[in-house]
Design a binder for these strands. Structure first.
Length: 894
DNA sequence: GCAAGGTC
């Protein structure tokens, strides 16, 4: 008799652990609490490939680990935000996940095998590696295996456990890359925006909730805001135009009637419309040219996935997506509906749907319909929407309850919606009889259509959908003639597109790959929480002044790729190249970091534009105005050693000349004059001398030129330039280049660390080594060097071209901006401006979103020389979203 | 005080 192997099985959430244990053990698993509240243990014996096993099944609760910067970079003023592109990052287990970690380690110590049952998607693969890391720390000898399953049904799970494989490292690395990109961009731009704007304006007077708002940036939240602002600009850019159309109405003596639509739709030229109309008036007899009558079917709704449930709940129940998800979560926890976060919109054929239907036959509201399905009279197998996340079924009721009296009304309505929707999806399609009529008057053609509902079927249980209409059509015959009751030339006006509804937003986000089914609602809610957008009484979204100013600011800077909706798609496409093994994680990261760092540098250099945009809507604080006015005129002499902004030489009328970074308040670097090699140390204390809330700046000098360092500390106010202390002290040991000198001496570390980084680059490791050189050269009036350094990046002329292009396109400024020619001139629709933007969007969009598109062909190597994955490389440009080149050589700027 | 993604 073989001794059983001890096997630790880990699922992504308890519900899966429970289901798989039940399926594999034939419902005989013994459950036991663990030290982690939401992750109990299930024990049962099993046999894997003839080998007896003692199975212990447990779960985590999503990711175990979080990515973050090291402690020294977490303080917002500890470094310039641009440093966050190169700062080290760490994966850590946050405090609230410690019990999960303990549970895994306790079990791992007693087991020989670890079987990973995490969801079969990229995030699941990444969590699998987190679990492996934690378990291996407790038991290095663990044998690691991965169960891949396509449905939670017994046969599939049994197959899966007998054919265990290995976790997919590429998929996991793709997630690592995404996390790192999101963190670096998010943190750097959030700090940039917040530090730049937070203190400058009277937010509350401008309608914001908070006095000092957090102005966050994220690669999902900002493109979402971009969608809202873009629509606002479309609306504002719309210029109403008149159009004309011929209106025909016919009423029989019996009272049957219909109106006809003109084949030409609308005509924007009054003269032409009049000529065509007069033709009709001259020969007004209408002749029926065609009668097409046939039976049509209206299919029931697809089984519900998360996003479709959100959209339906918004439309039919008038419930915001975020609220709906909370209630759905509750219903799931209480066992009334299945797992609410799923992409699946098709039922597994093995699923016993009839049993689920039977559960509802006693309901007073929809029980009768359920009975008719159960009897087979109404039964029709649910359609398949073609999506399957391989982990969850579509959302459906799991238990009937008539005892929902205590529930809040919204929860009741949601449960009812899930039940009715499920029953509808198991019902026969509705049957109608449609008649399409074509009529001719003189040279012009007209159509009308009638629809009579013959069998309601699924519509009986689903009251939210209206079908049918115009069923009082006169009984036309081909070649029949009649005299129209009314024949008129009517005038209409084009309307701007409507504001976005939450449903529109979800659709747009889905189309562009912004967020996942589980996070889309959060990103929308975040717009409201951050004060970037409002939702009006009709639940339509419009940007707040702050939201619009942010987008307009980046637009004006020529950095629209930072907010346009394809941003996420571009990131997703590139990391999916990692997941498929076509590019190395490091290469994609390097490319992304380089690109976004360069965008950050542009943004920091043009920060004034952002301030200007915000100043259109919000009043600045007096002190900030005073600060701006009080700053003396300086002369650019190079680039700041700590950030991308120009370093300025200031010569106050009284007092000592000094050199300071122009990037305040993001960077308050002040360096020594005349040597200009010193590192500043900034402490944010209020100035005791001047009336404004200006910080006191303490800074250190270091005379690198001397063999023994010479150090000084001085405290002064940047606003009034008043010194508080001035003391010098020497120190004894010279340090080799590349070691942070300030850090070792009790001064705060940032300055010294930056010095260390800069030296490292100078040693040739990094392509931006020139910066350190410029810093050294910019002392003693070496102006030429500094100026050359400031103009780095795209050639100036090209940048100017791009900016002016963008300005021409920016419709939010002039009020009545043009709508073409991108939109193709006279679009002939009610929403003519939309065509223009859609055209622009389509071109700008990554052929990317979620890796559905084929990989772009061809071989190319990044300018950094890193981008060689497994020989053939591919990906899309972070700037324009197109394949074939990298963003630092993007030919499609703007 | 930053992101987005899992999940309770």
């Amino acid at each position: 008799m073989q001794r059983p192997i001890q096997v630790l099985n880990v699922a992504e959430k308890n519900s899966i652990a429970k289901q798989v244990s039940a399926a594999l053990s034939n419902n005989s698993a013994r459950s036991q609490r663990s030290c982690s509240t939401y992750n109990p243990l299930f024990y049962f014996p099993y046999n894997i490939n003839g080998q007896p096993c003692d199975m212990v099944f447990t779960s985590v609760a999503g990711h175990l680990m979080e990515l973050d910067f090291t402690d020294d970079m977490k303080k917002w003023r500890s470094c310039s935000p641009v440093d966050l592109y190169g700062a080290p990052v760490l994966k850590k287990i946050p405090q609230d996940k410690k019990p999960v970690e303990r549970n895994l380690q306790e079990q791992a110590r007693q087991c020989q095998w670890l079987v990973l049952w995490l969801d079969c998607d990229r995030e699941g693969e990444n969590i699998a590696f987190e679990v492996v890391e934690v378990c291996r720390r407790a038991n290095p000898r663990l044998v690691i295996k991965r169960a891949k399953f396509s449905a939670l049904v017994r046969r599939e799970l049994e197959r899966s456990v007998q054919t265990l494989g290995l976790p997919d490292e590429n998929a996991s690395k793709a997630v690592d890359a995404r996390q790192e990109i999101d963190l670096r961009i998010g943190a750097s731009f959030t700090r940039f925006q917040t530090l730049l704007l937070q203190e400058k304006f009277k937010w509350q007077e401008g309608g914001l909730q908070e006095e000092r708002p957090l102005i966050s940036y994220g690669p999902c939240q900002i493109p979402t805001l971009g969608l809202i602002v873009q629509r606002q600009w479309e609306i504002r850019a719309h210029v109403s135009e008149p159009f004309w159309y011929i209106y025909v109405m016919y009423r029989t003596p019996e009272g049957q009637q219909c109106t006809f639509s003109w084949r030409r739709g609308h005509i924007y030229d009054h003269a032409i419309a009049t000529v065509l109309y007069e033709n009709c008036v001259d020969e007004p007899t209408a002749r029926i040219a065609k009668v097409d009558a046939r039976q049509v079917l209206r299919q029931p709704p697809l089984p519900l996935a998360t996003l479709s449930l959100q959209k339906e709940a918004i439309t039919h129940l008038r419930m915001p997506g975020e609220r709906m998800m909370k209630l759905a979560e509750e219903l799931y926890q209480e066992g009334f509906i299945s797992y609410p976060r799923t992409e699946t919109d098709c039922f597994d054929p093995a699923y016993d749907l009839k049993a689920l239907v039977r559960d509802h036959t006693q309901d007073p509201r929809w029980g009768q319909h359920a009975q008719r399905i159960d009897s087979g009279e109404m039964w029709h197998p649910p359609r398949s929407g073609g999506h399957d996340d391989k982990a969850h079924p579509p959302i459906h009721p799991t238990r009937w309850t008539g005892a929902s009296e205590g529930w809040p009304p919204e929860k009741k309505r949601l449960y009812e919606f899930v039940c009715r929707s499920f029953l509808a999806s198991c019902s026969k399609p509705a049957v109608g009889f449609e008649t399409q009529i074509e009529a001719a008057i003189a040279t012009e053609a007209f159509t009308t259509r009638g629809l009579m509902v013959m069998e309601k079927n699924w519509l009986e249980v689903y009251p939210w959908f209206k079908w049918g209409g115009n069923d009082n059509l006169p009984p036309f015959q081909v070649n029949q003639t009649f005299m129209p009751t009314e024949l008129l030339l009517k005038e209409g006006m084009t309307h701007p597109p409507p504001k976005l509804s939450e449903r529109d937003l979800i659709n747009a986000m889905e189309r562009h790959g912004i967020g996942t089914d589980a996070t889309v609602a959060d990103h929308i809610q975040k717009q409201l929480d951050r004060g970037y957008a409002f939702k009006d009484a009709s639940a339509l979204f419009s940007p707040s002044p702050l939201g619009e100013a942010l987008i307009a600011g980046y637009h004006k800077m020529g950095l629209s790729n930072l907010w346009q909706p394809n941003l996420r798609g571009v990131i997703e496409f590139n990391i999916s190249e990692v997941a498929h093994g076509r590019r190395a994680k490091e290469a994609v990261l390097e490319e992304a970091v380089q690109h976004f760092r360069s965008d950050y540098i542009s943004a920091a250099q043009k920060q004034g534009m952002m301030v200007e945009e915000v100043a259109r809507f919000f009043d600045p604080w007096g002190a900030a105005e005073a600060q701006q006015q009080a700053l003396p005129q300086g002369q650019a002499i190079g680039q700041c050693p700590a950030c991308p902004m120009p370093l300025m030489l200031y010569k106050p009328e009284q007092g000592t000349p000094y050199v300071a970074c122009s990037g305040a308040p993001l960077c308050r670097q002040i360096v020594c004059f005349p040597c200009a090699t010193a590192q500043a140390d900034v402490s944010a204390q209020p100035c005791t001398e001047c009336p404004g809330n200006i910080s006191k700046v303490a800074f250190k000098f270091r005379r690198a030129a001397l063999p023994l360092g010479y150090d000084a500390e001085m405290t002064c106010c940047v606003l009034c330039d008043r010194r508080f202390e001035d003391l010098c002290r020497s120190y004894g040991t010279a340090r080799p280049p590349g070691h942070g000198q300030a850090r070792g001496r009790g001064g705060r570390g940032a300055g010294g660390q930056r010095a260390g980084q800069a030296e490292g680059r100078a040693a040739g490791r990094h392509p931006t080594a020139g910066r350190a050189a410029a810093r050294r050269g910019s002392g003693r009036g070496s102006h030429g060097n500094g100026a050359a350094e400031m103009g780095r990046g795209a050639p100036r002329s090209r940048r100017r071209d791009r900016d002016s292009d963008d300005d021409a396109d920016n419709p939010h400024r002039g009020g009545r901006a043009r709508t073409g020619p991108r939109g193709g001139g006279r679009a002939g629709t009610q929403h003519r401006a939309r065509g223009a933007w859609n055209g622009a969007r389509a071109r700008g969009r990554a052929d990317a979103g979620r890796g559905r598109q084929p990989a772009p062909g061809g071989r190319f190597v990044s300018a950094t020389g890193h981008a060689v994955g497994n020989g053939a490389t591919s990906g899309v440009c972070f700037k324009c979203g197109q394949p074939g080149h990298w963003s630092n050589a993007c030919p499609n700027q703007g």
